[in-house]
Simulated scan of single mutants.
Amino acid sequence: MTQSKTRVLTGITTSGTPHLGNYVGAIKPAIEASQDPSVQSFYFLADYHALIKCQDPKRVQQSRLEIAATWLALGLDTDNAIFYRQSDILEIPELTWMLSCVCAKGLMNRAHAYKAAVAENEEAGNQDPDKGITMGLFGYPVLMAADILMFNAHKVPVGRDQIQHIEMARDIAGRFNHLYKGDYFTLPNAVVDEKSQVLGGLDGRKMSKSYNNTIPLFVAEKKLQKLVRKIKTNSLEPGEPKDPDTCTLFQIYAAFASAEETTAMRQQYAEGIGWGDAKNQVFEYLNAHLEKPRERYNKLMEDPGHIEAVLQRGAERAREETAVTMDRLRAAVGLGRFS
């Protein structure tokens, strides 16, 4: 299969409700890329990944629906991009096993998520450093490698905390190519948008489902206003100059605003804008920005059959490729058909 277009692949784990941090870090740049005819984009719901941390079936099912509706509401071009659920691509777990068989265990021992879980056990004084750690958590960088290598993605937009996984995918791809003496996999590159940053949440820590400090993307207008008002600020009075660079409120505004608007807000901080006024301005700006996509999202959530049809079309397009790829890989490792 000729690959004249640059291939870009992005996945989002389906274990929660999409929030502003997801939008800024992953969804917005992905949707912009989906509209570029020189790029072949792959976007998927990483629902196998969700099972690592979430054993609540209703939550996983609801999250899949919410995330699919979110991407579509925000303008994902599903004619150009291939949009699918990971679990609809039957070849992904098969490739994961093949890659597991060439992946060094020592490489997985160094994975940040695994090391953090072990460190937590050691700090808690557990006799077993692996207590509560599943093979899913331990091996999930291999599943992520399969997601990427299956489509020979050139570029994978990620946050800085995911760069290690792209490097692991490169290691695994290189090892497979070497062992089986062929150019079976493209070595992917991590793309970190230096302009995009990890958004702070309501309490100033990273906006994350695990901290329960998120602002959901399509929450109702009144709820959005309430959440913006809850964003943690310092005790400086109106009239006192404020530092925008250490302020979660400013950071959220800047993630959505133009360069000119951001400069103007920075000036207001220097002039000592009151926190109440700043929060009102940020709410008004976010609400205006999200109003139309929110309407589209609510309509989509009322029509899950439409979302299912879109995802099935995407899976068919993806599997046209994955079926051919796996035939080639099966033959490469000695699992080809007898003829």
Rank of each mutant, 00 (worst) to 15 (best):
Val156Leu: 13
Leu224Pro: 08
Lys195Val: 10
Ala254Val: 00
Gln251Cys: 03
Lys232Val: 14
Lys223Glu: 15
Lys131Asn: 14
Thr262Ser: 10
Arg313Gln: 08
Val60Ile: 05
Met108Ile: 02
Asp303Lys: 10
Ala169Gln: 03
Ala73Trp: 01
Leu179Arg: 14
Tyr269Thr: 00
Pro37Ile: 15
Val156Asn: 07
Lys209Asp: 11
Leu20Thr: 14
Val158Thr: 09
Ile82Leu: 06
Ala113Gln: 02
Asn177Ile: 02
His306Met: 11
Phe42Val: 14
Ile231Pro: 01
Arg59Asn: 05
Arg319Trp: 08
Arg205Gly: 12
Phe256Cys: 05
Pro37Tyr: 15
Gln197Val: 14
Thr246Cys: 14
Val198Gln: 04
Gly174Thr: 02
Ser87Asn: 01
Pro129Ser: 10
Asp171His: 11
Ser258Met: 05
Gly305Ala: 08
Asp77Cys: 06
Gln267His: 06
Ala124Gly: 05
Ala46Met: 11
Glu271Trp: 00
Gly136Met: 09
Arg317Met: 04
Leu137Pro: 08
Phe151Tyr: 10
Glu221Leu: 12
Thr325Lys: 13
Ala73Pro: 00
Arg110Ser: 03
Ala113Val: 02
Lys242Phe: 00
Lys115Asp: 06
Asp183Leu: 10
Lys131Ala: 15
Ser258Tyr: 03
Gln267Tyr: 03
Ile166Val: 10
Ala255Gln: 00
Leu9Tyr: 07
Asn280Met: 07
Phe83His: 07
Ile52Gln: 01
Val156Ala: 11
Glu194Cys: 06
Ile148Val: 07
Val198Glu: 05
Phe83Asp: 10
Arg296Cys: 13
Tyr43Arg: 11
Ala309Phe: 05
Pro18Val: 15
Ile273His: 00
Gly204Tyr: 02
Arg85Pro: 02
Gln61Cys: 09
Phe218Pro: 09
Val102Leu: 00
Pro238Cys: 11
Ile231His: 02
Met150His: 02
Gln61His: 09
Tyr114Pro: 04
Glu66Ala: 07
Ser210Thr: 04
His49Tyr: 01
Lys209Asn: 13
Lys105Cys: 06
Ile92Pro: 01
Ala190Ile: 08
Thr186Ser: 10
Lys105Ile: 13
Leu74Gln: 01
Ala146Met: 03
Thr186Ile: 09
Asp161Gly: 14
Gln312Leu: 12
Lys5Cys: 11
Gln3Val: 06
Gly204Leu: 04
Arg296His: 13
Arg313Ser: 09
Ala146Leu: 03
Pro304Val: 13
Ala254Pro: 00
Tyr253Thr: 04
Leu95Ser: 00
Glu66Leu: 05
Asp245Gln: 09
Gly239His: 08
Ala124Met: 08
His178Glu: 15
Arg59Asp: 04
Glu66Arg: 04
Thr233Ile: 06
Cys54His: 07
Ala68Lys: 04
Tyr23Thr: 14
Gly200Pro: 07
Asn298Ile: 11
Gly106His: 01
Glu66Lys: 05
Arg160Asn: 14
Arg64Met: 08
Ala124His: 05
Ser235Tyr: 08
Leu9Asn: 09
Gly334His: 05
Ala116Ile: 06
Val118His: 04
Thr96Val: 07
Asn126Asp: 10
Val60Glu: 00
Asp203Ile: 07
Pro238Trp: 08
Val228Ala: 12
Tyr84Phe: 15
Asp171Tyr: 08
Glu295Gly: 15
Ser339Tyr: 12
Asn177Val: 04
Arg175Asn: 02
His165Val: 10
